[in-house]
Structure formats: C-alpha cells, structure tokens
C-alpha cells in the first residue's frame, strides 16, 4: 500500500492549502467582517506604530482598513468583459471552422490556438504594455471618446492605455483557446450524427451549425465556466496591464483598476512588514476567496462540459 500512501500526498497538499489559507485568514475574517466586501479602502495602517486591538481583540496597526471591493469589482469586470468577447468569437469560429472551412484551415487555426495557450502569461503582459496599450491610447480611446462620449463612462479624457480594456483584451486571448477547444470538440462529436439530417431538411450550413450548437448547449455553458475559472485567477498579464489601482474605485472605462490575483502579487511584499500580521492575514483571506470562486467556476464547468482542458493540452 506504499503506492496508495504516495498517491494520497497530492490529496493531502490540496486539503492543506485550503485549511492553511483558512487558518491564516481567521484574524482578518473577524477583524474586517463584512467590511472586507463592502469597502474599497485597503490600507495596512501605520505599521511603524504599536498594533492596537480591534474587533474580537484581533490586533492591527492603527488606522488599518482592509476592504477588497475594488479588487472584487476588478476581477468581475475584467472577467465579464473578456467573456463578452470570447463567447461570441468562440461560437462564430466554431460554426465557421466546423461547417464552412476546409480541413486544412481549421487545423491551422487549431494548431495556433495551442500556441496561444502555451505562451507565458508575462509575454502577454509585455505585448499588452508595448503594443496594445499605445494602440488603445492613440487610436481606440480617442474614437470612443468622440463617438460614445455622451455616456459618462466613455467621456474621458483617457490618460493611459492600461486598465479595464487592456486587461480584458489580453484575458480574452488567453481564455479563448480553452473555450473554443471544448466547444469545437463537443460540436464535432455531434456533427456526424446530426449534420446530414438537418441539411437534408433544407437548412443552410449556418442554420445547421446553430442547431447543432443548440444540442451542445450544456458543453457550451460548461466551457464558458471553465474559461471564467481561468480568467478569474490570471495574475501576471493582468498585473502588468491593469494600471495597479489602489484605494480608488474606477470612474470610467479608462481608469486604472486592479484584480484579486494582481493585488495579491502586488501587495504581498509590503504586507510582510506589517508587524501585527493583519495585512498578511487579509491577503490570505483574499487568496482564499479567489480560490473558492475560481474552483467553484471550474467545478461547474467540469460538471457541465464533462472534462477540463489544461493549458497547452487544448486542441
């Protein structure tokens, strides 16, 4: 039974990650309470002063406040916008690749998707900084200010290319390989059975494609959840393109923002110098919450789509 003992080590790791983060979060959960989800002020306080007791007797530096609303909002907004791009592109390319395109073309797209999935997160971040952000600032934002400026969120003026739009576009490129691999795979598994009957009823190829996608509804929704799980947790590419906002809620689409994963990466070293330990605990709570929502999303996706696609394994 040595094999069973060895094979249980990863199970032990997984359980210990959860228990450990929960344990580390306890001071923050009691000290911050619901404030954690309703306030956007994230401030470790005067860390050079003696810690003072707060709610439930947990101690933090004077003036400390740990509200993660900005990060929660940023994660939700970037993921939502990324999915708003990814879902239609996935559906249209699936129908086009499976119904309209010669085999060679669809295989070329498939191979390139695999490369998309294997490119490191920091390289997307670099590309976002040196290519995407100047492009947005010089050409796209002036246009949105001029044409959509009557809506307050678009009025501007934009002063930087980083923020919600850049992060979401980069995220969309990173999520697309996952969703499209699953959707195209489920589509192909139904195609041979349903394509000929539907076409013989006089449907066009597009109408047949839409009908077959309808049969694969479950897998499509599952793929979206799996993509969401990936988008929620993405760190480096977002950290590099989000603008690193802190203590300020975005006022329009040009504002800098921040996400849970990016904030964890950006704030961990400064949290370590807080002698009361509350800043570290608050980050552990942020990490725990991030883990729970991304695991929930992937679990839902796995239940619906029937499998999970690892990076680089797609296609």
């Amino acid at each position: 039974m040595l094999i069973r003992i060895a094979s249980m080590i990863p199970v032990f790791f997984l359980v210990s990650i959860f228990i450990f983060l929960l344990y580390e979060s306890i001071p923050s959960i009691f000290y911050n309470g619901w404030n954690f989800f309703t306030s956007y002020r994230w401030n470790p306080g005067m860390t050079y002063r003696e810690p003072v007791p707060g709610p439930f007797g947990f101690r933090a530096s004077p003036g400390a406040s740990f509200g993660a609303l900005l990060f929660l909002f940023g994660t939700a907004a970037t993921s939502a916008l990324a999915l708003a791009i990814v879902v239609p592109v996935t559906l249209i390319t699936t129908i086009a690749l499976a119904m309209h395109t010669p085999r060679l073309m669809s295989r070329a797209v498939g191979a390139s998707m695999q490369l998309f999935a294997a490119i490191p997160s920091v390289v997307y971040g670099l590309w976002g900084i040196v290519f995407l952000e100047p492009l947005l600032l010089k050409y796209v934002f002036p246009w949105t200010e001029a044409t959509l400026g009557f809506i307050p969120w678009f009025r501007g003026p934009a002063t930087s290319g980083s923020g919600l739009v850049a992060s979401s576009l980069v995220l969309a490129l990173m999520v697309l390989p996952i969703t499209s691999a699953i959707v195209l795979d489920s589509f192909r598994s139904l195609q041979s059975r349903f394509q000929a009957p539907i076409l013989s009823l006089g449907a066009t190829r597009t109408e047949a494609g839409i009908a077959i996608l309808g049969f694969a509804r479950r897998q499509v929704i599952g793929a979206v959840f799996l993509g969401l799980g990936r988008a929620l947790g993405e760190t480096m590419a977002v950290l590099m393109t989000c603008g690193g906002a802190i203590n300020m809620m975005p006022v329009d689409i040009y504002s800098p923002i921040n996400t849970m994963a990016a904030a964890l990466a950006a704030l961990l070293d400064s949290a370590f110098i807080d002698a009361s330990g509350m800043a570290l605990s608050a980050l552990a709570e942020l990490g725990l919450f991030l883990m729970i929502i991304s695991l929930a999303s992937s679990a839902a996706g796995r239940a619906l789509a029937g499998r999970i696609v690892l990076r680089g394994e797609a296609w």
């Binding site: 990863p10 790791f13 997984l14 990650i17 983060l21 997160s121 799980g229 929620l232 947790g233 993405e234 760190t235 480096m236 994963a261 964890l264 990466a265 961990l268 980050l283 552990a284 990490g287 991030l290 883990m291 991304s294 695991l295 992937s298 679990a299 999970i308 690892l310």
Partner: peptide
C-alpha cells in the same frame, strides 16, 4: 481541482 487553482494562490 489542483489544475484549477490560480497560480497566485499557489504563490501565496
């Protein structure tokens, strides 16, 4: 499940 844990959570 381990495949779905965000990279930064592992880092933390």
């Amino acid at each position: 499940t381990m495949a779905a844990i965000p990279a930064m959570v592992y880092g933390l």
